[in-house]
C-alpha cells in the first residue's frame, strides 16, 4: 500500500530526512516516532505529496506520488498536527466542499454516520470557531475520511487531546486499519502508540535507527532484560538527545 524507498528531503544544506525506506501493508499501522525535530512531519508531508522529496520514491496504492500525484492523492488522506479548517464553512459545509473536491456522490449518506461516529453530529451547523480543539480535529478527520482513503497519514494525532479523546482517536484509527487501510502516524510519545501500532519506525535527526514490529524493536533495545517499558526503549534508541 505504502512503499517508500530512499526518501530524502533537504532544505538547503540541511538534511531533514535521509534515505528513508519502509513499506506498510493493508491493515498495518506504522508508528513514526522520534524526538522533536527528528523529521517526522517532514517525512509525512513528503509522503502525502505536499512537498516534493529531494530524492527517493513513494508509491501510494500503486501510484507514484511524483509521477501520478492525482491518482495517488485520491487514495490518501493527510491529517496535519493542527487541524486546518475553513473558518467560514460550517461542519456540514466542510463535508459538502470536500465531497465535491473528491467527487464523492451522495455524500450526505456517507457523512451522517461519520458525524455520528465522531460525535459531532449535533455541531453540524456550527463554524470551526465555535468548536473546541478536539471537535476541530474530529471535523478534520471526518473531512479526510469522506472519500474512504486506503492510505492515511496522521501527524501527532494524539497531542493535545484529553484521555477520552485519545481513547476515541485510537479506536477510530484501529477501526480503519481493521477495514484494510494502511496507516502511518507520528508521535514523539512512544508509549501512547503501543495499543495502536503494529509496527514502529524510530527516527533520529532524519535517519531511521530502527524499524519492525513492536516486538522486534522492543527485543532489540531491551538487550535481554524483561519488562522494559516502551518509554525506556525510546530513550535508549534515541539517546538523550531530546532538545
Amino acid at each position: 500500500m505504502i512503499e517508500v524507498s530512499g526518501l530524502s528531503k533537504r532544505y538547503g544544506d540541511f538534511t531533514a530526512v535521509r534515505d528513508l525506506s519502509f513499506t506498510v501493508g493493508p491493515g498495518e499501522v506504522l508508528g513514526l516516532v522520534g524526538p522533536n525535530g527528528a523529521g517526522k512531519t517532514t517525512s509525512l508531508r513528503c509522503l502525502a505529496g505536499i512537498i516534493p522529496a529531494t530524492a527517493g520514491t513513494c508509491r501510494i496504492a500503486g501510484h507514484d506520488i511524483t509521477a501520478d500525484p492525482v491518482a495517488a492523492k485520491r487514495a490518501l488522506a493527510f491529517f496535519p498536527d493542527e487541524p486546518r479548517l475553513f473558518d467560514y464553512l460550517t461542519v456540514r459545509q466542510h463535508l459538502a466542499f470536500v465531497a465535491r473536491i473528491y467527487g464523492v456522490g451522495d455524500h450526505e449518506a456517507l457523512a451522517e454516520p461519520l458525524l455520528v461516529e465522531l460525535e459531532i453530529a449535533d455541531k453540524a451547523d456550527q463554524l470551526p470557531g465555535e468548536l473546541s480543539r478536539g471537535m476541530k480535529q474530529k471535523l478534520a478527520i471526518a473531512c479526510g475520511l469522506l472519500h474512504s482513503p486506503q492510505v492515511m497519514f496522521f501527524d501527532e494525532p494524539l497531542t493535545g487531546l484529553d484521555p477520552l479523546g485519545i481513547r476515541r482517536m485510537k479506536d477510530s484509527i484501529l477501526k480503519r486499519a481493521h477495514a484494510g487501510a494502511a496507516i502511518v502516524l507520528s508521535s514523539h510519545l512512544l508509549h501512547l502508540l503501543e495499543e495502536v501500532c503494529s509496527h514502529v519506525l524510530i527516527l533520529k535527526k532524519g535517519e531511521k535507527i530502527a524499524d519492525g514490529t513492536l516486538a522486534d524493536v522492543s527485543a532489540r533495545f531491551s538487550k535481554g532484560e524483561a519488562n522494559v517499558s516502551l518509554e525506556e526503549i525510546f530513550l535508549r534508541a534515541t539517546g538523550d538527545s531530546e532538545t
Binding site: 475553513f86 473558518d87 467560514y88 464553512l89 460550517t90 459545509q93 459538502a96 466542499f97 465531497a99 465535491r100 473536491i101 473528491y102 467527487g103 464523492v104 456522490g105 451522495d106 455524500h107 451547523d125 456550527q126 463554524l127 470557531g129
Partner: peptide, 28 residues
C-alpha cells in the same frame, strides 16, 4: 462577525471540482 450562512448556490457533490472553491470562497 463570523456567522454560519447558507451556501451561495447549491453545490452538487459531483462535477468540476474548481467550482467547489467558488462556492467556498463566496462564503468567505
Amino acid at each position: 462577525a463570523l456567522k454560519a450562512r447558507p451556501g451561495p448556490f447549491r453545490l452538487a457533490s459531483t462535477g468540476r471540482p474548481e467550482l467547489a472553491f467558488l462556492w467556498k470562497n463566496l462564503l468567505s
